[in-house]
Structures are given as C-alpha cells and as structure tokens.
Amino acid sequence: MDAFLNQVFAGLATGGIYASVALALVMIYQATHLVNFAQGELAMFSTYIAWTLIDAGMPYWAAFFLTVVIAFVLGVLIERIIVRPVERAPVLSVVVVFIGLLVIFNSLAGWIYSYTIKVFPSPFPKEPVHIGSHFFSAHQIGAVGVTLVVLGLLYAFFRYTPLGLAMRAAAQNPDSSRLVGIRVGWMLALGWGLASAIGAVAGMMVAPVVYLDPNMMAGILLYAFAAALVGGVDSPGGAVLGGFLVGVLENLLGAYVIGNELKLAFALVLIVGVLVVRPSGLFGKVHVTRV
C-alpha cells in the first residue's frame, strides 16, 4: 500500500508538469485553434537559458524569474514574427511552421550547449520530507507546489484583471472584441508569451528529474497532448485535471502493468483513443460544423 501511495504521489508530481505544458497548449489552442508542436522545445530552450544564468553565478530564484520573463518575451516575438504571417494559412502550412520551430529550437540547443546531458539544480532541499509514515522527495512536493501557484496566478489573472478579460474576449469572439477596442493581435501575442512562460516553469521543474538535454521534452510534450485531449482541448481546467490524471495513470501503469519501456505507447493509445471515442475530451465543448 505504501509503495502504491508513493507511486500515486510521484504520478501527481510529474502530472503537475504535464498539466503545465497542457495548459500552455490549451491557451494557444483557445486563442488560435492551433496546437503548438514547438511548445516542448520552447520550454526546453528556456530551461537552457536558466541553466546559463545559474551557471554564471546568479542565485536560483533570480535566474528562475528572469528566465520566465525571457521566455515570455520570446513567446511574444515568435507570435509576432513567425506565426502571424501564416495565421490564415491552411492547417498544413501552420503545422509545417510549428515543426520547423521545433526543429530549430532543438538544434539551436544542441548547437550552443551540445547534446551531452547536464545536471539542473533543484531549488528545494535534498532531504526527503516525511508526511505521516511516507517519505517524499522535497523536489516532488516543491514541483507540485510551484505548479499549483502558477495555476492559481493564471486563474486570478484571467478571472479578475481587465487584461485577462480582454484576452478571454479576444479568444472567444475576435470580431466583437475588435469592435470594442481590444487589440486582438496583441492579445494573441500575449497568449503566446504566457504559454511560453508557463512552459519555462514546467521545464525548470522537470529538468532536475529527467536531466537537461535537447530532447528532454519530446516525451513530456506527448503526455501533455494526451492530457490536453483527455481534459478537452479547449478547457484550461480540464487540461490541468487531465495532466494530473495522465501523470498518475502513467506511473501506475508503468509500475504495475506495462513496465517503464512502453510508457510512450500508453500516451499514443490514450491520444488515439480519446480522439476516436470522445474527441471533445472530458470537459471540452462538442464541436458542431455547419455544412
């Protein structure tokens, strides 16, 4: 039973990471109906930036916040410069551009930092924490905590600030929003910036566990896709719940049923399964196309 609970908790810890990346995906999807295939690589690249800052002697939390800001700016720039020209292009062109971005960030990281694995520090103490009779690693608890803080901040931002309201309006009804004076284009760019910043946080939280290398996000991106789809690709709350769900399921199945080697196949089955059985996910809107 103890082992089982530990597995569940470890699942929640990785689930938090999936939830963050899934949330970043959903934010961009809601605003533009596009799935950003480069989300994972952006997060990976931001984590390298953090590594550079820490390596240069900056204290962890200063590097952390500076990286979030840099990632935000990077996201805004990418939307403005690269994504905007293909905004109205067919899906295939957009997917090709995203895959192009994925490849560019991956190879840039490899070019600048080499493909050797790097150790990324955790801001949390090394000693395990015990709650009752259970031992948990401090980093796991810290990562879940950071994820929850990010989610709380985002919720507050979208729910209680005028800017958040404007962003929601721009995503839901761009034409009417434009009529009341919201600069829809900039709201999209802001959405990209936020998504990129969330990705950076997720990257910095997962890097101490999986180690930092240019390919560290490929699997995580897949789980985040699965999480976003399970929760409903246009539902932020669903994506978060989906993230935790996928994390726990992945860990339990890995430990007790299919073994660690087939975890990615689980994501594949989950993605195809959800898309076929219930494409709108648990909390998503059912799409009806008018012919």
């Binding site: 295939f37 897949l222 896709f225 789809l229 594949l268």
Partner: peptide, 26 residues
Amino acid sequence: LRLEGLYLALATFALGVSMPQLLKDK
C-alpha cells in the same frame, strides 16, 4: 478517418514519437 487536420497531425506525431519504444519492447 474521424480526425481532421490538426488532430490527425497529433495522432501521427504520437505514433512517430512512440515507435522506437515499441520496437524496443521486450
């Protein structure tokens, strides 16, 4: 068949990413 555009891209992306693991299966 039931997946359009983006969703098909997602499903096939998942297939592409997980293929090496499937081939390594014991």
